[in-house]
Simulated assay, not measured.
Amino acid sequence: MLASELEASHVHKIKRAVIVAATVAAVCGMLLVGLYICRSRTNLKVKTERSGIMDYQNNEGHNEDLDLPFFDLSTIICATENFAINKKIGEGGFGSVYMGILEDEREIAVKRLARCSGQGLNEFKNEVRLISKLQHRNLVKLLGYCIQQEEKLLVYEYMPNKGLDSFIFDQTKGKLLDWSKRFHIICGIARGLQYLHQDSRLRIIHRDLKASNVLLDSEMSPKISDFGMARTFGGDQSDGNTKRVVGTYGYMAPEYAFDGLFSTKSDVFSFGILLLEIISGKKSRGFYHPNNKHNLIGHAWILWNEGRPLELLDECLGESCTMSEVLRCIHLSLLCVQQRPEDRPSISSVLVMLGSESAMPQPKQPGFFLEKDSNEGQFLTSKHESSSTNEITITLLEAR
């Protein structure tokens, strides 16, 4: 090749190398910038959340005098064997619950809020703020909390018999709860609700009362737990509304599930469902009678109107029942699940009716009542309604 051609080829190679190097540098630079932005956003999110936690801990915690012990993370890790799988005793919408043993041999239950939960911090704030002020024998006791690193933990007294659902929905364990124990549990839940609705400093609506949120101590006494969804009212206020409906299908009152309206009467509706479950040993959600295809509410309503209410009774109860109490509880459950909130009794009236022999009003047709023939009934069960929830523009359903 001529010298001029060699020189031109050399210059071309240099230009190509420069272009490749510049391209690689540009790509690497863009990747680095992208990584920096992502890391900055992550750090900002963590910093914001920690700032929120610290603001809550410093401002609300001290100003409201929570008087709750702070548990060090290492203490809880040791007590739960680093959150071992065999220590896990429950799981909810915002995290898991672990059994632990402290160095002084006290048994505890640790609620570990999920890191991926966008509502974890609000859940944590709400539960600490509420339960720290509540003292009642039918409410679970909060022993302390832990906010450390990325963990948000609540430490409760340990309930050795776990949730009510583990008994009433199990044919074997259900036999351990004879009618006298079930009636004792019913009355205890009602007393706990009365404290929340009337006797505590603030009126509190639980909004997620269900069998799994009623824990049983060593003496089978009930304690209401999980106040992350609860709302408080001051003064004479007793109701409210929300665009974010949270709770569990099968327990939510109709006005709350569809319009976001909640009140003490929406808790009463949930209590009525719980009563039906305790009496029958059947889950409200997913139950359909094999002969008439009614849901649990509809089945109870039909039996009541046909004069056969005792057929609702759990088979494992046998002859241990006081039939007058059973009939009274079935009657009361149907009063609690009536369609219109104003027709339902207050929880204080419920307690009076549970402890007396006085006459009670006749129940009206309940909410979420399913007829076998859709032309025969006015109300639909949640099974059918769930297909139309997308048409509700003011309410976001967040079932647990």
Rank of each mutant, 00 (worst) to 15 (best):
N59C: 08
L130P: 00
T23A: 11
T75A: 09
V11Y: 09
F71T: 01
M54R: 14
V33W: 11
V140P: 02
Y145E: 05
I85T: 13
V33Y: 14
D67E: 14
N86Y: 12
Q119Y: 03
M30I: 15
M30T: 15
M99R: 09
N122P: 06
L130Y: 00
L113N: 02
A17N: 15
M54F: 12
Q135S: 15
V46A: 11
K88P: 01
V97G: 02
E5Y: 03
E5K: 00
I37E: 08
E103F: 06
L139M: 06
N122S: 12
L32S: 12
L134T: 00
I37K: 08
Q57M: 15
K15Y: 11
G100E: 01
F94R: 01
S117H: 05
R16T: 06
S74H: 11
L130D: 00
E7I: 04
K13V: 13
L73E: 08
N58K: 13
E49Y: 05
G93S: 05
D104C: 10
N59P: 04
S132W: 07
S117M: 04
R106K: 09
L102W: 05
M54Y: 14
A114T: 03
D104S: 12
P69Y: 04
N122E: 15
Q119P: 02
S51K: 14
L142D: 03
H10P: 07
I37C: 07
N58H: 12
F70H: 07
L113R: 03
L2N: 15
R137H: 14
T80G: 04
G29K: 05
A84Y: 07
L143C: 03
I108F: 06
K141Y: 01
R137Q: 14
R50N: 08
A109D: 00
N126A: 01
R50D: 06
M1L: 12
S117Y: 06
L2C: 12
C28I: 12
L113V: 07
S40Q: 13
L134E: 00
E64N: 15
I77H: 06
S9R: 13
E5I: 01
A109Q: 02
V24S: 09
L35Q: 13
S51D: 14
L32E: 08
S74K: 10
H12I: 15
V11I: 11
A21M: 09
H12D: 14
G34S: 15
M30Y: 13
R41V: 06
V46Q: 10
N58M: 14
E127M: 05
K88S: 06
N126F: 02
I77K: 07
E103I: 10
N82T: 07
A114Y: 02
G120R: 04
K125S: 02
Y98V: 00
C116F: 12
D104R: 09
L134Q: 00
Q119A: 01
F83Y: 02
P69R: 10
N126G: 02
K125I: 07
G95I: 03
A26Q: 08
L142N: 01
I77D: 06
L32T: 07
E81W: 03
L73M: 06
H12P: 10
S117N: 06
K88N: 05
L142Y: 01
